[in-house]
C-alpha cells in the first residue's frame, strides 16, 4: 500500500470518530463552539503526530515490557507541552475546552495510533497514519462545531450570523443534539463509503470483462 493511502484512508473510510467510534466523548462535549473544536482537534493532531515519531523511531530500542509505559510517557509529555503552548497563546479558548486538553493523553485514538500502529510499522506509514487520524478527528470536530454553533447559537467563531439573537435550532448545542449530529455524520460517511466501494467494484468488474473480451 502506498504510504499516503494511510492518510486518505483515515479521513474517510476509517475515520476514527465516524467509523471506529473512538473519541466520541470529546467530540460531543467540546463541539459546542467551532473554535473549541478546532483547538482540541489541532491539539490531538499535534500530539498524535509528535508522539508517533519517537515511538516508531525507537521501536527496536524499547524492550517489549517497557513499550506501554514508554509510549504513555511520550504521549503525556507532548500533551503537557501542547497544553502549555495553548494556554500561553489562546488562553480563553483553552479555558473553554478545559479538562479535555489534558485528556488527550488518554484519548483512545492517540493510544491506538501510537501504541498499536507505530510500534509495528516503519516511519513513513506511521507518520501518514498519525497525520490522517489526527486530520480525520480534526475535520469531524470542526464540522460538528460549525454546525452546532451556527444552528444552536446563531454564531460562527464568535461572530453572529443572523440579526438579533435569532437561533435556528437551540437543541443543537445540547448533548443530545451533539449525539444526533454525530450519528447523522456517521450515516452520511457510511453512505459515501458504500457508494465509493460500489464504484470501485464496478470499475474492477468492467476491467475484468474488457480483459476477457480482449483475450
Amino acid at each position: 500500500m502506498n504510504d499516503h493511502k494511510f492518510f486518505t484512508k483515515k479521513i474517510l473510510t476509517e475515520n476514527p470518530v465516524l467509523v471506529m467510534t473512538a473519541g466520541i466523548c470529546p467530540a460531543v462535549a467540546v463541539t459546542e463552539s467551532a473554535s473549541s473544536g478546532l483547538l482540541l482537534g489541532c491539539g490531538t493532531l499535534l500530539v498524535l503526530f509528535l508522539s508517533s515519531l519517537p515511538a516508531t523511531l525507537m521501536k527496536n530500542i524499547i524492550p517489549e515490557k517497557a513499550v506501554c509505559a514508554s509510549h504513555m510517557i511520550i504521549i503525556a509529555a507532548f500533551t503537557a507541552v501542547i497544553q502549555m503552548i495553548f494556554y500561553s497563546w489562546f488562553p480563553q479558548v483553552t479555558e473553554e475546552v478545559g479538562i479535555f486538553i489534558p485528556l488527550i493523553a488518554v484519548n483512545c485514538i492517540v493510544i491506538e495510533s501510537v501504541n498499536g500502529f507505530a510500534r509495528n510499522n516503519p516511519v513513513l506509514p506511521t507518520l501518514f497514519n498519525g497525520l490522517g487520524t489526527g486530520t480525520g478527528f480534526l475535520l469531524v470536530l470542526i464540522l460538528m462545531g460549525i454546525i452546532r454553533e451556527s444552528m444552536g447559537e446563531g454564531t460562527l467563531f464568535g461572530y453572529s450570523l443572523f440579526a438579533g439573537d435569532m437561533t435556528l435550532m437551540p437543541f443543537a448545542v445540547l448533548l443530545p443534539g451533539g449525539f444526533f449530529l454525530l450519528s447523522l455524520l456517521a450515516a452520511l460517511n457510511k453512505h459515501i463509503n458504500r457508494k465509493t466501494r460500489q464504484k470501485e467494484k464496478n470499475m474492477t468488474n468492467n476491467d475484468r470483462e474488457e480483459e476477457k473480451i480482449s483475450s
Partner: peptide, 26 residues
Amino acid sequence: YMVSLAVIICFFVVSAGVVFGTHKLL
C-alpha cells in the same frame, strides 16, 4: 526488569526535560 526500568526512567527524564524546557521557553 532492570533494562525495562532503565528505559522507562530514561524516557521519564527526557520527557520531564522537554516539558521543563518548553515551560522555560514559553
